[in-house]
Design a binder for these strands. Sequence first.
DNA 1: TGATTGGTCGTATAGACAGCATGTC
DNA 2: CTATACGACCAATCA
Length: 755
Amino acid sequence: MNPTDVPGLPPGVPEFLVDSGIEALYPPQAAAVDAGVTEGDSLVASVPTASGKTLVAELAMLSSVHRGGTALYVVPLRALASEKKAEFERWADFDVEVGISTGNYESSEEWLSSRDIVVATSEKVDSLVRNGAPWIDDLTCVVADEVHLVDDPNRGPTLEVTLAKLRRINPDLQVVALSATVDNADEVADWLDAELVKSDWRPVDLRTGVHYGDAITFDDGSQREVPVGRGERPTAALVDDALDDGGSSLVFVNSRRNAEAAARRQADVTDRHLTDDERDELAALADEVASVSETETSEDLAAVVEKGAAFHHAGLSAEHRSLVEDAFRDRLLKAICATPTLAAGVNTPSRRVIVRDWRRYDGEFGGMKPLDVLEVHQMFGRAGRPGLDPYGEAVLLAKDHDTMDELFDRYVHADPEPVGSKLAREPAMRTHLLATVASGFARTREGLLDFLDRTLYAAQSEETARLESVVDSVIEYLVANDFVERNGDEITATNLGHTVSRLYLDPMSAAEIVDGLRDADDPTPLGLYHLVCRTPDMYQLYLKSGDRETYTELCYERETELLGRVPSEFEDVRFEEWLSALKTAKLLEDWASEVDEDRITERYGVGPGDLRGKVDTAEWLLGAAERLAVELELDSVVAVREAKKRVEDGVREELLDLTGVRSVGRKRARRLFEAGVESRSDLREAEKSVVLGALRGRERTAERILENAGRQDPSMDDVSAAETAVDDGDDGGKGETGRSGGAGADQQASLGDFE
DNA sequence: TGATTGGTCGTATAGACAGCATGTC
DNA sequence: CTATACGACCAATCA
């Protein structure tokens, strides 16, 4: 089928497709068109990664827009949202405008409602529905990307419920669900009243196999010799072998530490294959990587990047990740060693994929648990770059013959697991039942059950008894915590319940916060950080060896600051969790006390990405706590707001006025303060030479800051920097800056003890 | 003698959405 | 209750 044969597209689009090299549709794409995706019919496409799913979605959305509608593209990750938005912007010439809406970035409200295509995460869509965004009612087409994630215990139910709500709001809505190949795609299609297109077709040949001894054995029985030298590791031999053919490698391992260690070893291999030009480019890239942050992670990454390899995991900052991903896509980096993040994230295809570790530690399982077939197949799916590689290879590693047989059975010749709804789990129910009541989708127990009948859970499950019993116990919980009220049969959300639903909080988090704040007289930042850290919406840090003692001690030392009653050290299982929350809270307190980033990452054994993540979540939760305090007219509002501002800017109290000035962050604010410029008004009146000195003689920066502070004459012409007492950043590892009295001083004492 | 190999022991274990209102060094 | 790999350390072995 040719693009010109596709009905329903805006004029010019088929020709545009042909011009951009798409002369014939891939078979699954043609099947989707035959099933009516461009004529408003719903569809489930269960096809391999990189087999042209995105074009199917684009055809559906373009045709829907052409008929005068608007489309929504739902993704599981923020990074994917920006990737897709950029991709869809190629339709700008056809008057199709694209907007984006995620937690950290959003096109403005009225602008968004004028878009033809909006890209958003499933949580954001859920939140938009809860907050009654008007344009949601006018949608004509929704695309759900990676719909197999309904199986995810944490986030799957959100996708499931959101799709159910969108369909209820608009019964004529066209739903296009894109899925990896799963066993029971037909059930998903039944649920969505959609046609099913199922295919194994791939544009680039994929060969999967197992390496054992000195060769890879592929699924078709063929072999490729890849001898492993004496003392050499199989992974290194495979990376080397791929490079001999001019191909890159993507290695999946099961822990961050392994990713970093393996990347160091691979770097020695990739280093041997570099041209002089590549070496220059890599040196520049390494500099860029190193300058992202002054942390060990940054240095370690730069050290391997220089040799053409990299590691990739969630401890990296967003900048690190995109630098690595882009350079790998540009074929500058020859090998990446990654945790499973990469398999689910943005598009990073590679000639060869090596799944080195196929088991991962799982605390609940109590040991090393084999990865799901679906997960491994997702990794396999990264092999082969369309248009660049003649074929892709995915290889598992076996160290003995039995393992080889097992891997063939378990992964190479196996079908992926069926996906199943996780909606009946209580944490998911808590959030979604409250939201369903609060946004008026149901007003009674029966109404709730009726709504739930539209979900995948109901479509998959014969008996509803389990669902009913979870619903009942969750209603009890919501009533007991004053989120909903019962009047006879009717269930309505209280004001508090409405607020919690709109804030997108887990009701259990809200209950914890409300309890803690009610108990609080004059809460300290640490007390508030601990409060939000022990909610289920915050992932806590692990306790490492020795941490138990450290934080038990800290817990007693600062017991008066902690909100609520400390669980008993000896009787209560919650004590452990209380300590992890304390460790996490302490990290936030360090951050809000201007401890350097590298100091924090080292002290808590986390990466810069984790630090950002914790700070981000704390910001969100403290913002929510502030709103709750306002709602309940509690005295702690001011204390919460200040604690929030301090994590947001990463500074002590006395710098908050300065960091309120645009382009002044934690570093510059501290330098200015130390030079005697202590507030926004000081900035307007201070001696210019002092300001310039504090800013290390950066004239442009100084001018910008003075201007932002509202100074009349910001010009730095003819001003020379004054000497300042501030030491110059290279502070010999002493992260804690600032000793000036006020609120900071009493905290300083315990900080010292903590070392 | 120094380099390489081989054993034990201790230790640590993937990921990341959301409100609101704007912007680091 | 459940596993495994890595790195650090130290001892044994070989050129």
